[in-house]
């Protein structure tokens, strides 16, 4: 069981991800939300027990790539996994996210199965 942080500037997408997590039967203690990287970092300060982050890339204020870089200054990939959930499916963007310290990558549109496949290792 983990505390999970969803970072996306779309409230619709945050609701969809929460619904998909339920459909995929991913058991989490609680779900926190942030609409950009800066809010996400503030959430991490207030909630140091967050166990996993699902983050969009294209967001105002601070994007997902910069968020991952900031998270990696304080947390290893094992201590706080970050999974990117984004429309950016190009090889260059995936490579950029992974080299910045992301643990995994899911492209929108996604199915519950694709979310489950990426998250299962962190909840087993």
């Amino acid at each position: 069981m983990k505390k999970l942080l969803i970072v996306d500037d779309s409230s619709t997408m945050r609701k969809i991800i929460k619904r998909v997590l339920r459909q995929a039967e991913i058991a989490v203690d609680s779900i926190l939300e942030a609409s950009n990287g800066i809010e996400a970092l503030e959430q991490l300060v207030a909630n140091p027990d967050v166990g996993l982050i699902l983050s969009d890339i294209n967001m105002p204020e601070m994007n997902g790539i910069d968020l991952v870089k900031a998270v990696r200054e304080a947390h290893s990939t094992e201590a706080l996994p970050v999974i990117m959930v984004t429309t950016e499916g190009g090889e260059a963007m995936i490579a950029s996210a992974m080299s910045s310290g992301a643990n995994g990558y899911v492209t929108k549109p996604f199915t519950p199965d694709s979310i489950r496949c990426v998250l299962d290792p962190y909840f087993s």
Partner: peptide, 11 residues
């Protein structure tokens, strides 16, 4: 968000 996903898929 629909526009975002359509544009992402198109990209």
């Amino acid at each position: 968000e629909c526009a975002n996903m359509v544009t992402g898929a198109f990209k």
